[in-house]
Design a protein around this nucleic acid. Structure first.
Lengths: 337, 337
DNA sequence: CTGGGAAACGAAAACGATTAATACCATAGA
DNA sequence: TCTATGGTATTAATCGTTTTCGTTTCCCAG
């Protein structure tokens, strides 16, 4: 392994000068610096990340917390897309992404411990139970952090405009003639309240009285629960003609329930998703849905995290960025019969 | 930050003893060791990963190379599932996963350089252009490495039984009455030859003469090219009655082409995918496909990589593990009309 | 020619851990 | 009583960088 010492030897200068030359720091003559850099390049010198991290307390590593209840955050397509956007920006700035776990040397540790252990420069939090005490601990430590769909006091965060998303969806359903519009929401946490707000806002503007029996809970990305919730709605004396699903993926459960009830989408029941997952563009009927700009969310999160890292220590107020959504008409909303 | 030195001070022993006690090494008395470990725990001591890595040349970090041509490996569902299986096993052993990129400190570097820079203990290679010179360079260095769907000389690898997968698919199509069975394969590299082998093996056993015009190339996961390839097949004077698609995702393109030709799946044309992506279970008609056991592949890869890390330096021959696939009947194969 | 100051360079101390070599000190055997 | 033995503990070197601070060199003004 080529080290500073080796370069120093070959150039007949001190290790200190080599370090300065390579990092373009003042304190070393221009031509000497050039000579040093040339031989460094010639020898294929690469700084040792561990040594640098040890000395500078900067690892250029970002921790990624991407888990859901089933510990399968990687399989959640929306968040993987977000992560991909995040990754691109971070990589441009020379950061590496680390999938955080809770095992270090075969012992289970907390997220915060992992952070300290690995000298992480920052943490990206998405698709997780935000009220996890370990996460709160992490957020209360002074680790630069950015989160999606949730704000931690004093940290940056990125959201889609959830209110507007559901609002637009309801408006569209109404425009197509629907009056009995139900909402199967995700668990009562995180973005759910915002989405519900959009739902009620639209109903109220349209002069439709909200019905308690038209709002039932499922879970995000939960096909089984959404299946059951849809059944419940269909069993009502006066069933809805249009159902807003928790998200695109969960809507598979809804569609299944509708099919199994002998009904068709959208002729008998209209449905609307949320997320705008790519593959839904290719299955027919194309899902009407509220598309989030996953890539943009990830990129924005990255920029915010870079900012937080930059200003580490200084007491910068956390900012929350809201990104627009786009309603996609699709083919699963038809006039009620 | 609490360090060994701090613990040593509090216990009135030397740093060396603390290190030994914490790592359960001989050379320190049982009761002293216990006392040291107790105060370490009390102080919330965590070893500094950078210092350890610097001293021991072991980072407990694994590099993950998950990219396709579009630099979007994370979005490839099959490989993300593989990665998830891989991750679970690795985490159990206390390893962290790092998404490898080619930017370090704003300068672009090669995979191998990144490896050295970050002291990676091993590398996981999947979903990538295996002939990339940088990858070859990496494989020729003595970095422990495991790959999916491709074998690098001297390294471990994991495959699905690709021959058998396509073989079974063709057999099933034949059993349902098909005789004109076409194959749209992925690019002529990697697993493609094995899959083609299965295709030809089945045809030959069934006494069906292979037709050159029934085998066309597309790309894996490429909806557009698969759309075009399907069109090409449908335009034949004697079009096939059943088409094997490069993979599940690409099959969307095939379905679209079939629809746009005014035909129906499976009444007019039968199709079969490859991969067994989860979400296809929920769209109707349910895709007939060859399911790979993604999780098992990832787990197996992890075990092999651990083995390679264990035996680093020793000249262990690379082993290649083949995992069984399962044909899923689905609903997209019907008797030809 | 000298004194002063800036620029170039080097020595050395960290960062936090691991580990070989060594010192210490009982106890046991001769 | 002296020496070997074995277990505990410490000393010190080291991993590869960064960074402070002191020293040297050199140039130019006085």
């Amino acid at each position: 392994m080529v080290t500073l010492k080796e370069i120093a030897r070959q150039c007949g200068v001190s290790v200190a000068s080599v370090s300065k030359a390579i990092n373009h720091m003042p304190g070393v003559g221009a031509q000497t610096a050039q000579r040093i850099r040339d031989t460094a390049r010639a020898l294929g010198y690469l700084p040792n990340a561990a040594a640098q991290a040890l000395k500078t307390n900067r690892s250029f590593n970002i921790g990624v917390l991407l888990e859901d209840d089933d510990n399968h955050g990687l399989l959640h397509q929306f968040f993987v897309s977000v992560l991909d956007g995040f990754r691109v920006v971070m990589e441009e700035q020379g950061y590496d992404l680390m999938l955080m776990n809770r095992t270090v040397g075969k012992r289970t540790i907390s997220y915060l411990e992992h952070c300290r252990h690995s000298n992480l420069d920052g943490v990206f939090v998405a698709c997780i139970d935000f009220s996890d005490p370990e996460l709160l601990e992490l957020a209360n430590a002074n680790v630069p952090l950015v989160s999606i769909d949730h704000t931690y006091e004093g940290h940056h965060s990125v959201y889609s405009d959830n209110v507007d998303g559901v609002y637009q969806a309801v408006l569209y359903a109404h425009e197509r003639g629907h009056r009995r519009i139900a909402y199967i929401s995700g668990a009562p946490a995180g973005v759910t309240s915002k989405r519900l707000e959009g739902y009620h806002k639209a109903l109220s503007e349209l002069g439709i009285a909200p019905r308690a029996d038209y709002h039932v809970y499922s879970r995000y990305r939960d096909i089984h629960r959404t299946y059951a919730a849809t059944q419940q709605l269909l069993a009502l004396k006066e069933p809805p003609t249009c159902i807003l699903m928790p998200d695109d993926y969960a809507s598979h459960g809804g569609q299944l329930a509708i099919q199994n009830a002998g009904l068709r989408v959208p002729q008998d029941i209209s449905i609307i998703g949320f997320d705008g997952l790519e593959y839904f563009k290719f299955i027919s009927p194309r899902l009407s849905t509220v598309a989030q700009n996953a890539t943009a969310i990830g990129e924005q999160a990255a920029r915010l995290l870079l900012l937080a890292i930059e200003n580490r220590g200084k007491d910068i107020p956390g900012q929350s960025v809201k990104l627009p959504v786009m309603f996609i008409k699709g083919e699963t909303v038809a006039p009620p019969n």
